[in-house]
């Protein structure tokens, strides 16, 4: 029975997935199990995305189904139980740039891979990154940018992190539309990731998580 829901979500069968959730809730099924199954389904979606079997629209649609399920399940949860997550990643689109599609996908992929992700949003000045590094003690930071103006903005952000004396405490990765390894060198980041799957491998490598 559990597998029906996992596969309905993973196959992006929205109506079927919602029907199953509704039927289960009505039958008094453990709501936490529904969430756990949804999480497993999202792992499959993430794997398919990394394997280029699924694309951005599939990811967005899966996210949409998941949030509908959350809304349905929420009233049935007694209290929120926070999942303990150890490895923290800060992510944001650098100052001057307001693009967020790529960043949101990286956030999503890191999240389903078990990272605690602090997504700062778009057009984020260096000080905000620095503050968050201090507050959370995160050791991994992802800088996102779509436009070529982000080259300098990323460089400025990394320079500011260095001046704040935090450069040795964090690993920095960059990604987005016009980025490549030449830009990585220019900005002084530790790594460039071509897509969300690469961002996850980089973060896992740094966090000391064994890669499959």
């Amino acid at each position: 029975m559990a597998e029906d829901l996992v596969s309905a979500i993973a196959e992006l069968e929205e109506e079927e997935a919602l029907r199953l959730v509704e039927a289960r809730l009505a039958a008094g099924y453990d709501p936490f199990k529904i969430l756990e199954e949804s999480r497993r389904a999202m792992e499959i979606v993430g794997r398919r995305f990394a394997g280029k079997e699924y694309f951005i629209p599939d990811l967005i649609y899966a996210g949409e189904i998941l949030s509908e399920i959350s809304v349905m399940v929420k009233p049935h949860l007694g209290q929120n139980i926070e999942v303990e997550r150890s490895d923290k990643v800060i992510i944001g689109t650098v100052a001057g740039d307001v693009h967020d599609i790529g960043k949101n996908i990286v956030t999503f992929m890191l999240d389903i891979n078990g990272f605690e992700v602090y997504d700062l949003g778009i057009d984020i000045p260096p000080e905000t990154f620095i503050e968050k590094i201090r507050d959370t003690g995160a050791e991994i930071v992802g800088l996102s940018g779509f436009l070529t103006l982000a080259y300098d903005s990323m460089k400025n952000t990394i320079d500011a992190i260095r001046e704040a004396g935090l450069r040795d405490r964090v690993k920095l990765m960059i990604g987005g539309g016009q980025m490549d390894d030449g830009v990585r060198k220019y900005t002084g980041a530790d790594a460039y990731g071509r897509d969300a799957a690469e961002a996850v491998s980089l973060a896992k490598g740094w966090a000391g998580i064994k890669l499959p």
Binding site: G96, D97, V98, D100, L147, L149
Partner: peptide, 18 residues
């Protein structure tokens, strides 16, 4: 869109508001 002086600083370019 956002353009210089209107939601964007330090950029010559404009950016789209999704």
């Amino acid at each position: 869109i956002k353009w210089p002086g209107h939601g964007i600083t330090g950029s010559h370019s404009f950016q789209y508001v999704e």
